[in-house]
Design a protein around this nucleic acid. Sequence first.
DNA 1: CCGCACGATGTAAGCGCTTGCAGTACCCTG
DNA 2: CAGGGTACTGCAAGCGCTTACATCGTGCGG
Lengths: 342, 342
Amino acid sequence: MVSIDEVARLAGVSTATVSRALSGRGNVSLPTRGRVENAAKSLGYVVSASASSLASGRTRNIGVLVPYLDRWFFSTVLAGIASALMRRGYDITLYSLTDDRAERRDIFDTFLRRQRVDGVIAISIELGEEETEHLRELDLPVIAIGGPSSRLPTLTVDDVAVARLATEHLLALGHREIAHIGANPQFDIDFHIPTRRRQGFEQALADAGIPASPHLYEPADFTIEGGFRAAKQLLGRPGNRPTAVFAASDEMAIGAILAARELGYRVPEDLSISGIDGHELGEFFRLTTVDQFPRAQGERAVAALLEDIDDPAAPTPQHEPGALPFELIVRGSTARPSESRG
Amino acid sequence: MVSIDEVARLAGVSTATVSRALSGRGNVSLPTRGRVENAAKSLGYVVSASASSLASGRTRNIGVLVPYLDRWFFSTVLAGIASALMRRGYDITLYSLTDDRAERRDIFDTFLRRQRVDGVIAISIELGEEETEHLRELDLPVIAIGGPSSRLPTLTVDDVAVARLATEHLLALGHREIAHIGANPQFDIDFHIPTRRRQGFEQALADAGIPASPHLYEPADFTIEGGFRAAKQLLGRPGNRPTAVFAASDEMAIGAILAARELGYRVPEDLSISGIDGHELGEFFRLTTVDQFPRAQGERAVAALLEDIDDPAAPTPQHEPGALPFELIVRGSTARPSESRG
DNA sequence: CCGCACGATGTAAGCGCTTGCAGTACCCTG
DNA sequence: CAGGGTACTGCAAGCGCTTACATCGTGCGG
């Protein structure tokens, strides 16, 4: 493996100058820089990450905490993070959090403390009190996406507004009997997103003078299958069948579409359905949704984190809550309710 | 940050002994080891990754090359890798390969050469000739999953046999007009899996005395949407409608199921459909498939790689081609063809 | 009882960089 | 022309570990 000394020798300068020329820190004359770069290129020299980290305290490496690797939302955010970091020359170290208590402890107690990363991004993770504390004690720049905790700087989308937007779209179409597929309440202990979406839903109804009725609510687990089952429940109940379903995620909305089809209802003629997220399958299912641009969320988190790292003096930027963009995407799964019904 | 010296002082030994006690290399008496471990724990000491790497040349970090972060198969393999590595105390550095030529070069020329990883796992990546060469030149243990190249040690499933198995299942049910959804031929330049699956399909047909007919083949792109469109093509063609469709991936098979439904065919009564992979949605769609246990593939790759790392003396284990397990999972999407046709 | 082997520990030399400090040359100001 | 910058470069001291080698006992065979 070629080392900095060889580059220095070939370029006829000291290793200090090579370091400065290649890292861009400190002053190096233009011709010298050129010689060093040529020497480095011709030798195929690449700085050793560990030596550089040890000497400088910087690792050019960001740790990313992910709860589920194989769920679309998370892997999409992760893809955004990966591409943004790669562009800036950073490596990304992946920590996949499971439900296993001991494994989680390990991550916070050991893995993250090896001084291997310059900062941490936590994607929508339900962190325990203690885990949050561990994170803070790392004394590293941290940024969370999607609100695991109010005690960490967090990038959030205004979930109440998102849900309002989707609901108002249905209301504007003329729907009055709108059902909602949300989350199991137990979820809510440290994870408030589903609750906030439900609030937005209910606010929009209230504004339209429609009381929330419990039989138009059904919890599920944010999967297609969960949405499918929930929709079957909602559509199978005695009493007025809803003319529209607002699901708190696209995956559940897709499940609802499949359930409706299976029960013989046409979407959107007999039943309008909308979701939230911007799932890649949305287009295929012609799903009306509120896109929250998960890929861009990852990219923004990177930008915010690196800003913090580059200028640690600046106070941790207090991210305004709910600043992330979102947008209603109207496709073919929503329409005016058919005339024949009330 | 607490360093090894403080631990040494507290335990009343030299730093060398602390290092030996904590790493398990070299001899340390039981009582001494105990004192060191206690001291380390009470101080909350964790070795600095960069210092340790610099001194020892080991990083306890594995690089993983992934082509698509947001496709189920890849993220599932990745999840398997992540959990296996975490259990062994390894970190995982993620390199997400895009189609961008320059970005890819960067990964091979720079990122992987920072001496940040002890080994590399490449998940089903279509690597260029040059890229493969770069990988080999890294002089690091490398293992690939799913056959990017014959020049790298690779863990593979016998794709021909997998496809035969699925096809033979359909034949055994009595199907004779079986269509196949595979990949676009251009795909095949460096990536042979779809081709091998097609071969298995055709072999099984041939063994049953059935000639392959081109109008029963349709290429797609391995997505649900692609499978949907391909199935519509197949089912819309003049001539005998197939009684069964064998798709080269579960995602395409699911697309085919949706297409069949939309055209008014019942699955499996009017049309049997099977896939390959073991996709998480398979159960929901009651999809008959050949599971190839992607999570386990990731875990195996880790085991093989670490074995190589732990004992570099041993010749790189030549993995028998096609050794990975697979299994036919019969669910509700396949059945005997209905009597009325033939 | 001597010498040797071996286990336990310490000493200290790096691992390959970064960076504070110092030195040099040169330029600008007054 | 002196004084004070400024830009560039080199020197050398680490960064926090690991490990080859040296040292010291201890137990044991001869």
